[in-house]
Design a protein around this nucleic acid. Structure first.
Lengths: 216, 216
DNA sequence: CGGTGTGAAGCCTTTCACAGCA
DNA sequence: TGCTGTGAAAGGCTTCACACCG
């Protein structure tokens, strides 16, 4: 399945969720395309990678497609997540409901700043970064989120991979290198604004898009 | 210039910034590629869209390339920014240093929840969403950030565009539609984790990437 | 030599257009 | 008839390979 398609599956899932209030609801590729702001042919091709899910003349059964996407994305289980960095962003992420809704459970929040260790963030207590290995092992964590300053992020990534984390989402404003076999995604909030700024300077024109990408 | 190149310019800028401690420093395309985790040919092609900046046999002069990228991205001025939504994420973004460092100045934070209005977030006071028009006008804001729940985001986007905002960065977990001429980027934090989850289920393999995209 | 700038090739993604099924 | 599933065409991006210059 193309990487570009994978990056769009969560979008479809989200849009379908909004339609799933009625049981047995169906959508056409055109209807779904309108909801996510894209072309119907693309929707059909994307969904076709999941198997022949549609019924000709009728469309797609919403709940069936959702189940299929969830299974493809591995969202049929809960993923325990550890967040490194209890600054403003780390705390906001720890409290973010959207993660839990998608099946990601923030089980630990750590920081290296002793003035933060021991403080409460929602139902979590901030632990020492030195406890990472223990926390990852005891909660069977495979997914880590980095919300530290740039200078710390590579060290944190090294530690996370050393203790067995296999997927990392980094918000640190710097490029990180991870070993083969570890999946990495980087989101840089300032970069997003800079791209907007470019389009303000030159003409806006293009179509709506957001993320796309891979791993290592 | 290709959209994919535009999306990488902030990455180069960031990496070059780390090299700029020495005056008159130079980098080869290969050196820069290593820093951002990509192929040297791509770096050369990307930079070539900015004009012939390199010197054969030597490489690129760091500060000159930085200046050229800044100018291309429109980062030679300060951009006042308004954030809508003073929940955990909105407050974290309001306090995020990276924005100011890149030239984006958060001048106002608004919310529709009366229990939040009047509270302090760093040096900002949370204002009523009803004040958006006045705030945008008085600060000449062209860039808005949406950090509200999904159900409010389309209304907020409509209001922002109505009062003259021309670029929107949305963190709301839903697809937004904006009029032609307005630039939109959407970042969905849960989607990022879902994409990681896919790669955990299937084999990790690909290379590091993050954002790419356009606007409307 | 070392390293840029760039045509051309190759690969990936999107879009078209339509056969085929309910 | 309505709408999916999909070959094939078109477009865009990345990578190669090398001419050319300091």
């Amino acid at each position: 399945m193309p990487k570009a398609t994978v990056a769009r599956l969560p979008l479809y899932l989200r849009a379908l969720g909004a339609l799933s209030t009625r049981v047995d609801a169906t959508v056409s590729s055109e209807g779904l395309a309108a909801l996510v702001g894209m072309n119907a042919a693309k929707v059909r091709k994307d969904l076709s990678y999941l198997g022949a899910l549609g019924r000709r003349g009728t469309g797609y059964e919403v709940t069936a497609v959702m189940a299929r996407i969830r299974s493809e994305l591995g969202l049929t289980r809960e993923w325990p997540v550890v967040i490194v960095g209890a600054g403003n962003l780390g705390r906001a992420l720890a409290l973010y409901d959207g993660f839990r809704v998608s099946g990601f459970d923030v089980v630990a929040l750590v920081d290296s700043d002793s003035s933060k260790i021991g403080t409460q963030v929602g139902s979590l207590t901030v632990h020492s970064a030195g406890d990472l290995g223990r926390l990852v092992a005891s909660h069977r964590v495979e997914v880590g989120v980095i919300a530290t300053p740039a200078r710390a992020s590579q060290d944190v990534a090294d530690t996370l991979t050393a203790v067995g984390v296999r997927a990392i989402l980094s918000f640190a404003p710097t490029s990180i290198i991870v070993p083969r076999g570890v999946v990495l995604r980087e989101v840089d909030l300032s970069n997003e604004l800079q791209i907007l700024s470019f389009h303000l300077r030159h003409g806006p024109d293009a179509n709506l898009v957001n993320s796309a990408g891979g791993a290592s």
